[in-house]
Design a binder for these strands. Sequence first.
DNA 1: ATCCTCCCCTAC
DNA 2: TAAGGTAGGGGAGGAT
Length: 873
Amino acid sequence: MSSSINDQSECLDIPNEYQLGPEDLKLLQGINRDVPNHKETMVQNEPVAPGFGDFHTYFDQRKRKLAKQAQEQAQKAPEHKQIFAGVVFHINGFTQPSHYELKKLLIERGGRFLHYLSKTQVTHIIASNLAHSKAKELQNYRVVRPEWVVESVRANRLLCWHSYQLGSERKVPMVLQNAVLANELATESSNHPNVMPISRPPLPPRQIVVDKYGEGLNRDWVRRNLATEKDFIQRYYANSRLHHLSMWKAEMKDYVAQLRRKHTVKKPASCKPVIMHVDFDCFFVSVSLLSYPQFKDKPAAVCHSQSQMQLDKDALEHSATSSQIASCNYVARSFGIKNGMFIGQARQLCPGLVTVPYCFDAYEQISKQFYKIVAQIADETQAVSVDEALLDVSNAAEDCGSAELLAQDIRKKVFAATQCTVSIGIGPNILLARLAAKKAKPDGIYTLEIGTFFDIDLCVSDLPGVGHVVEDALASRGIKAVCDIRAVPLDMLKNICGDKTATMLYNFSRGIDNRVLESDKPRQAFGADISWGVRFSNQNEAEDFVERLAAEICRSMVAANRIGSLVTLKIKKRQTGQGKPAKFLGHGICDNLSKSNSLPQMTNDPAKISAACIYLLQQLAVDPLDIRGVGIQVQRLNSLEASTRSIDMFAKPKARVYGHNANTSINAYELPSVSQLDMSIVNELPASIQQELRAAFCQRNGKYDKAFPKASAASSRNTEANGSRRGRPRKHSFAISKNKKPSSNLLDSFRKLEWLDTIMPSQMDNDVWNHLPINIRRELAREYVKSKPVVKPSQKNLTSASESKASQALQYSGPTLLGKYILADIKGLVKEWTSRDEPVAEDIDEFAEYIEKLVEHRDLVKVQQHGIRPLLP
DNA sequence: ATCCTCCCCTAC
DNA sequence: TAAGGTAGGGGAGGAT
Ligand SMILES: Nc1ccn([C@H]2C[C@H](O)[C@@H](COP(=O)(O)OP(=O)(O)OP(=O)(O)O)O2)c(=O)n1
Ligand SMILES: [Mg+2]
């Protein structure tokens, strides 16, 4: 309705009419938003790891495999006129003639069959009948009746498909990424006017987005905000408050460290310690309100949603928007509104709430002035956040006469420079200063001594480091107030919430805090996480995004002159059963998966980091449609300069070198949880494999849980070996086995699939990958993430839509299900088969066959030596 | 013991 | 219609 926000604006999301007034402009002068330096710092000439036995095996197998494929293709030599050359088809639902017959007719005559609906490749969909929803989804495709195939064969030429369009009134299809409208444009393959030339470049780069949960992802303005857009990360970051917060924190730490190195202020530890906690009052909204002084005394909040709905109380009931409040003023807080709340929820508490837009540049400028002032005064400064600093003013306070005088002096200076108020808490340690700051707000100071500390009423969640989980864990033992903690022995506390947290609580509850300010610890991780707008339609999109995210991290590492060797990929995976998230384009309820990869050398090369990440992504084997968030961290850092002049760049610090895993044994780390197994399937596996599976699971599950933090999920007595791991979700118990006829069991497993993890050799072994010569890895990486502009369209078309798996072929020579062997692909396939109707019998058979082959494959390498025969049908 | 991996929690 | 990021502390359980 209203929202006049200009989406295109680069940095500020402020509508023109809301620009800062002249009195604010001075604050914004000299804006120098940090554009990171794009200095390319590549690490070259990496040594080849010696003794890499598996390397040749992989490539030999690859060669053999290719040769075999070529041979098979040659055998398929045409006895028929290739009338379907260039047709890539997919068959949906029940058909007459059968799938099998249609496939035969088409393939014998040059057609290519895709077992699932690749929107980038399929030229024709063959169906006799479509469910309504399916028909709608496919309305822009060429959906033809099987008669088109039959009659074309009969005529021995490709007939115009239009006459056989399913549902005669359907529009001419706008086929997808690689497609050109058939009859109209496909002239150069003039023999086949109905066929889109495979070598066509993508025309409209728009695909249909898979939208399983009615999120409206295909609406234009939504689509423009999905992570699949090329400039998504930039735009998202430009508008993300939390991203800004994180970046600013790092910047302020740098700034403080820099100042410290310059002045090297050493304080004589003679005087009594005085710590100040200085914190802006409702920072964002205070700054933003400088531009809207008329709202200063109204309940106001900073948030993206700018429709002022207070006039329309009726609409407010129904418009529970999921925009979050970054900061609200104290008037708003009197209504119960809090930072982080959804705006829809806040309006229920306070219909008159005014919203003002973000003003990130102003926040940054004001913060810089703030830090400049306090860092000059304090003996020691620790940057806590953009609006908050810890100061050691032991000396300064003494010089000034009293801590309180100094505090007021700081407040006056900051206000003069920024027109915003800070509150200051004063105490003998960090804890007390922090607690005092809370009491000081708004616009005041407060001093807390160890003596007065015991007088104030605090609940456990007032203590720093106590969030909801610890709060609940304590509450379940009846511990709610800080004074309750004092009554609990340390050992019991440790039992509740772990050693360190318990010790912390024990001390904090007594006003004791031995931490010292730290101003110059170098950072130990670089990361990027995005869990908003993440909706992928296929693996390729997921990998593209991972690549961009990795590049983003590398940019900041390069700018900071740091390199690292431990790469971790984190995936938020939609939890089974979860649909549309509460927050618009949000991640909803997810399982978190992570996997790390230790690189053989330290690096900040985006090619290497992203290759590692894509490898990890494939190992995690999450259905791309379920990915709701992606995060990458690089750790085990070193400074580039420190490393370049020493050999220790080539010896990753602290990284332990592990031996190779035989690919043929079940690695406990690769296991899904027990409950993901369908026992009816497992029971049909060869005994030796069953045994191995059980052994592997026993190995992993053999321990018991402690109460914390898992107890928080289900209070108390649920310490089953089962009852923890949220990351790798389990759905059923190991013991569950439904007695159905075999095909029905198989059908059940169609819908689960995760258990495949256990018997499918996942991709190349970690060590194998890591020890590949870098140029080989690069080559693989390039295949993983091909650079679109350079790639000839024909090439692009030849690689499957479910993507880059070309490189996988280099590693995998085992059985395939209709050409697929990566879990995500198999899942996609099966999902496609089962998404609407019951799966077709043939598909089930094909699946069964695949499973059989998998078992046989293991038979070759492993089972045979046990002398056990496969038991599958 | 100490390190590793894969998590979880907290704060702004 | 929205921008649910990230560094760092910490723990469990396995490997060495
Ligand atoms: N959930 C949150 C919490 C904070 N912030 C941002 C906006 C805040 O203005 C800023 C500082 O956080 P504070 O916790 O200091 O909160 P305020 O400064 O807004 O209020 P006050 O410090 O007066 O309690 O961080 C945010 O975007 N989202
Ligand atoms: Mg604040």
